[in-house]
């Protein structure tokens, strides 16, 4: 087993997800299955192969620095559950 239940709990916490006990068990074994499958890739000799950071071969996709249209305030806040005035309103967070 590469992944323990504790690690599943840790990752879930980082992602702000809450799981029931049986779900944690299920994800632990599923994640282990995935990692075991990935292990197969390690059998391939990749010496001298550059690691990729992207799946497609394209590079340098740029845009020019020219101003386009922004959303109006109403549209920007349309999905906010609790807007106030021009703002999104959220529970107070001070780190």
């Amino acid at each position: 087993m590469k992944i323990t239940k504790k690690e599943v709990e840790y990752v879930a916490h980082l992602a702000r997800l809450e799981f029931a006990e049986e779900e944690k068990e299920k994800f632990t074994s599923q994640l282990n299955d995935i990692l075991m499958y990935m292990e197969m890739l390690n059998q391939i000799d990749t010496a001298g192969v550059e690691p990729m950071s992207h799946a497609i071969a394209q590079k340098n996709a740029f845009r020019e620095d020219s101003i386009g249209e922004s959303l109006d305030n109403e549209a920007a806040l349309a999905n906010a559950p609790d807007p106030r005035g021009d703002f999104f309103r959220v529970p107070k967070v001070i780190e």
């Binding site: 101003i67 386009g68 249209e69 922004s70 959303l71 109006d72 305030n73 021009d86």
Partner: peptide, 27 residues
């Protein structure tokens, strides 16, 4: 000091009305 944001066409100008320089990308 660019005119637009790093990944979208919204203006970077300081002091605009709140949330008026936003678009689906930066939101």
């Amino acid at each position: 000091l660019t005119d637009t944001k790093i990944f979208c066409n919204c203006s970077t100008k300081f002091g605009a009305a709140p949330n008026s320089h936003t678009c689906p990308i930066c939101l």
